[in-house]
Design a binder for these strands. Sequence first.
RNA 1: UGGGGAGUCGCCAAGCUGGUCUAAGGCACCGGAUUUUGAUUCCGGCAUUCCCAGGUUCGAAUCCUGGCUCCCCAGCCA
Length: 556
Amino acid sequence: MSSRSRISQPPSSSNFIRQIIETDLASGKHQGIRTRFPPEPNGYLHFGHAKSICLNFGLAAEYGGRCNLRFDDTNPEKEEQAYVDSIIDAVRWLGFDFGPQALFASDYFDFMYRCAEYLVESGHAYVDSQSADDMRHHRGSFTAPGRNSPYRDRSPAENLALLREMRDGRHADGAHVLRAKIDMASPNINLRDPAIYRIKQAAHHRTGDAWCLYPMYTFAHPIEDAVEGITHSICTLEFEDQRPFYDWLLERLAEGGLLERPLPQQIEFARLNLTYVVLSKRKLAQLVQEGHVDGWDDPRMPTLMGARRRGYTPEGLRRFAERIGVSKANQRIDFAILEDCMREHLNEVAPRRMAVLDPVRLVIENYPEGREEFCDVPNHPQRADWGTRPVPFSRELWIEREDFTATPPKGYFRLYPGNRVRLRYAYVVECTGYDQATDSVRCRVFEDSRSGTPGAAAYKVKGNIHWASVAHAYAASVRLYDRLFTVPNPGAGERDFRLELNPASKEVVTAQLEPELRATKALQPVQFERHGYFNPDAALGGFNRTVTLRDSWAKS
RNA sequence: UGGGGAGUCGCCAAGCUGGUCUAAGGCACCGGAUUUUGAUUCCGGCAUUCCCAGGUUCGAAUCCUGGCUCCCCAGCCA
C-alpha cells in the first residue's frame, strides 16, 4: 500500500475475528482462509446483509482467501428463484466477486442424506413419530429437563427403513421427523435431540420434486461449510447456542470418514442495528405491503435495491462496514455514520452542478433583456483536471427562495434589500427589493464583478448563491428523501413502529436545473451545489436526493 | 428460572499474553484557520477513567471473587 492511499484509507483496526484468523494462520491450522455469505433466498438484501457481505468477502480478500456466495435453500416453501437473482445482483453491485457461480445448499442434498443415513446407522439419529405438539412437550423448559421420546430407542435398522420410506414419499408431512440423538436433559435446549430432517411434500425451486425430505438449517449448514472447505463460518449472535451442535455434527461425520479435517469453526458477531431504521424482514415487508413506501426498492428502504436508487454507493457502504467494525456487543449504529461515509465518497466522485429546488425569480434590472452569456463553472472545486462547463446567464434567473428574505435574521448573509451576494461563478448583485405582483426578487448587477475577470476580486461579499437562467433551465421533479422514522429506535418497547413513520420522509419538488444536468447518466451521482448529492432515477425521471450537505447554518 | 453471550466518552470501537493507558481511531458535538458551496480541507478541544464493589500486585481497563444491567435460546424457520 502506498503512503498516499494510506492517508485516504487509514489502516483498519483490529477485531476479534481478524485475531482468530491470524492465530489460525500462524499456528498452521489453515494455510489460507475461506469464508462464505449464506443467505436464504426468501427476501431481499438490506444494510444488515451488507455488513455481513463486506465482512466475509472483505476478510477473504484481506487474507488472500476466497469467499463463496452460497444460498441456504433448505426450505422450499419459502424460497424463490427471484430472490436468488436479486441477491446475486446485490452482491455484485456491492462489488464482490464470488467466482464463476453461486453455490447452493440444495446441490449437496444427496450428500446430506448420506450423512443422515450414517448417523442413523451409527446410532446418532433416530426417527421420531411424535406429533410436533408432543415433541414440544417432551422438550421440557428452560428449567425442566426434557423427556425421551417413546420412539427414541428404535433400532438402527428400523430407523433406516423408516428414513428411507420418508425419503421415498411414503409418509405425509409431519408424520415423522429425523432427530439427532444427543441428550434430552441438556441445559442447552438445542442439544435436546434437535430435528434434522423433516418431510415436506413440496417442490423446490432448484431440485423440483426430487425430494420430499428436506434438511433443517441446523443440520445442513455445518455440512455445507465443511463440504466447501470453509475455515471460518461467520454468523450472527443468535446462533451461539447452536455452536455445540455444529461441532457435534461435524465431529460425528468426521469420525465416520464423511468429512475431512480441519473442520470449519463457527464464529458469531453482533448483527447491525441502525438508528432511525428498521431492518427486520417482517417490518420491512409490512412497510411495502401496507403501502407506507413505494416498494422494496423505494429509496427510503434500507434494502440494497433501495440504496442503489437512493444513490448510496457500494464504496460508501463498504467504508461504512469497515468503519463500524465488528464485535459481539449488541449495538445500534448512529445513522449519521452511514451518511458521513456517503458524503465522504460522493464528495470525491460527484461532479458539481447547479439546481434550484424551490425557485423564485430574480430579475436583474440593469441587465439587458435578450442578452445571454456563458460562465465557466468548474466541475469540481478541488479537481481542476475535471475542467469547466459553460453555464448560460441572462437577465432573469431562478434562485432559491430561501436565499432571499425581506427581514434577515442575525447572521444571515444572503439576499435582502441593500445586501450584495455573488451569483456563483458569475456576477455580484445587490438586492433592490421584492416585487409582490410578479413574485420576483429585484437586483442590479455590477458589470465589472464577473468571476474570472480582474475586477472580481474587488468585491468582498460573504454570500454566494447558486442560480439557473430562466430562459435556459429545465424543470424536473426531484425527490427529497429524509429518514423514514422520527425516532432512533422505531417500535421499541410496545410501540407500533408504523406510528413513528416520518410523514416528511419524501418531498417531491419541481426544480429548475441547469442544462448540463440533462446529460447525467443513470447511477451517475452529482452534487447540487449547496444542497447535497443526488442520483438520477431511470424509472421516475428527475433526481433522488441521496444525502444533504452538512449545514452548520441551518443547525444553529 | 437453566443455558449461552455482552457491558470502555452521546454513538461505534481499539486495547484485555498486567506497567509505554492520566485509554487509539471514527461519528457526533464545540471552537478556530483557509474557502466563489454557511460544503470540502485544515488545526485544536472532547473518558485521571474503563458496569459496580471488594481483592491480588510495587503497579489492573487488563488477573481473582461477588454483585448489577442488557441481549439470545423451549420452530418439523433460518
